[in-house]
Structure formats: C-alpha cells, structure tokens
Simulated assay, not measured.
Amino acid sequence: MNRFAAPVTVRAAAKINLHLGVGAPREDGFHPLTTVYQAVGLCDDVTAHPDADLTVSVTTTDWVDAAAIPVDGANLAHRAAVLLGRHHDRDLTGRLEVEKAIPVAGGLAGGSADAAAALVALDRLHDLGTSDDALLALAAELGSDVPFALLGGTALGVGRGELVEPVADVGTWWWVIVPSRVGLSTPEVYRHFDRMFPNASPEPPDADQLLSALLTGQPVSLARTLHNDLQEPAIDLRPELGDLIDLGEAEGALRGMVSGSGPSVVFLCESADHARDLAGALMRTGQDVVLVANGAVAGAHVVPSHV
C-alpha cells in the first residue's frame, strides 16, 4: 500500500423497513422476506486510512453505546475488509475509523451500513476497481441488509432481504426516530415470531399496496400501507414499544411503527415542520433521544475525508 495515499471517507445511511413481510422459516433456517427498504438521513461515516495493519476504531454520538460495538474481527466493517481482500486474493490493510450515529441493535441496520461503507472505502483506498455486482455479492455474504446499504434510496428486497432492486418513489418523507438505550436481539425477535405464528405462510405478504402509495408522494397514503410482521413479536417482548407507538400517534404522528426487528420506533410525519413539532412533543414526555430524519437518501458514497 502507498502509505501516502489519501484517506477515504464513505457515508452510509440507516434503513427503515416500510414493509416487512415475513414467511415461515425455510429449510436453511432463514425466513423468506418481502421488504421495502428506505435509507434515511441518519448516517455513519467510515474513514479508511493507509496503515500496515487492519484495525477498527469507533467514536459515537451521545445516544450510541460505544461499549456495545466490537472493534475486533466481530465488527462487520472488519469482516467486510477480510472478505474484500479474499475476493482479490490479498490481505487488505487499513485503519478503519467508524463515526457512529446509527443506534446499535436498533433495527436500523447500523452494522450493515458500516460494512457497506468499509467495502467502498477500502476498494477506493486500494484502487481495487471492484465491480458493483461483485460488491453487492460480497455484501450479501455479510448480511441481509448490507446490499441495501450499498444501494440506498428506496428498494424492494426479497429472498432473506439481500436481493434488492430500486423502486419508484416520488416523495420526500419525514420521520421521527426514537431509539432505545437497550437493544433487542434480531434472532430472538424472529424466534418469537415463530412461537407466535407457528402456522405462518411460507410466502411473505406482498408489498403491492405500499409500492403504489410511494407513487402518490402523499404521506397519508404511505401511512396507511406501512407494515411490519415483526412488530407484534417485538412488542410482545418489549411492551413499552407499543406504549411509545400509542403516545406518538396521540401526539399527532400519521403512523408509528417498530423499525425492523426493533427496538427503535419510527413515526411518519406530514412535513419537516410536523416532524420537528412531534420530536419536541415526545421529548417533553420524557423521551431522552428523539431524532428527525428525511428519506430517501443515497446509499454508501464517498464524501470529503476528515483530514
């Protein structure tokens, strides 16, 4: 590696599942999904610096628990580096600095965003020229949400969520996001789904109505079609999430929903002003972290490096 190469910073966004249809588990243990992802303006930055070794360091915002984030081989950004190197038959090195604003274990795919950002950052740092198709294939090996983190925007995901394609979306959507200080295990939520719905169909519910709503650009239309099959098991495990949804809707949200497997809760609003008003109202009820974000935003992309 050229030790004088310039660092590369890549930004990747959190995701919200506008639709998350879950089918009964397949023979391989994975649940078939039909999901519609949207990337929202709550982002992590990953900066790759030239270095003789492969290391990961993490800095966080006030609402992210740094202690919950591994900095060894268990970190998804580190795993992304190893996988990209294996693809090119070499050991990749670099100092990966992760600046996290996406909550951990929050149903917002923060780890997946970091993995996607690391793939792009190290590809650029080492001038590897990895094709988009190859990056997407590597992303799918890392996790179901990582390909979407590369793609961004609004997209339909099938399989276990890793097969993604962009969908038409004419709106600008405003969200209030309320993360939880205590994470919720995605595997446990899926196991609880299986306990609650032992006779679930092998075919997940389709997203046709939601895809049509995206074409209207109308928040009220989108609110009517938001859907999450994991919401009921998440609330059964953490009843306070249901109470939070009721509170946000009572304060004027068009619709509240658990994000993915939770425990973050998201509220769709009519406009930026409506989102800011709702955020203020929720903070006055005692919620200590309330965030406002718009969607859809870009997937993993290079930004000016912090030098």
Results as ranks from 00 to 15, higher is better:
Asp288Thr: 08
Gly106Asn: 06
Gly295Trp: 00
Pro70Asn: 13
Ala139Pro: 12
Thr34Gln: 13
Val176Cys: 02
Thr55Leu: 06
Cys269Lys: 14
Leu222Gly: 05
Gly94Gln: 10
Ala5Glu: 02
Leu247Lys: 12
Leu215Met: 13
Ala234Ser: 12
Val303Glu: 09
Ala253Phe: 07
Phe267Ile: 06
Val158Lys: 04
Val220Leu: 07
Thr225Met: 10
Ile177His: 11
Val36His: 09
Leu150Trp: 06
Val58Ser: 10
Gly29Pro: 04
Pro198Asp: 09
Leu244Tyr: 05
His49Met: 02
Gly110Ile: 07
Glu162Pro: 03
Asp236Val: 02
Asp28Ile: 07
Gly107Phe: 13
Leu142Tyr: 12
Gly73Cys: 03
Asp91Arg: 11
Leu84Arg: 09
Gly217Val: 00
Gly171Met: 11
Val303Asn: 03
Val167Gln: 01
Thr93Trp: 09
Pro166Lys: 13
His88Arg: 12
Gly94Arg: 12
Ala200Leu: 04
Asp89Asn: 13
Glu162Cys: 02
Trp63Lys: 01
Ala223Trp: 06
Ile177Thr: 10
Asp132Ala: 12
Trp173Tyr: 04
Thr55Trp: 13
Gly256Glu: 13
Ala67Phe: 12
Gly107Ile: 11
Val82Ser: 00
Ser259His: 14
Ala118Asn: 10
Ala293Arg: 08
Ala117Gln: 15
Asp243Gly: 11
Pro147Ser: 15
Gly161Asn: 02
Gln287Met: 09
Val220Arg: 15
Ser261Met: 01
Val292Ala: 05
Val220Thr: 08
Lys15Phe: 10
Gly171Thr: 04
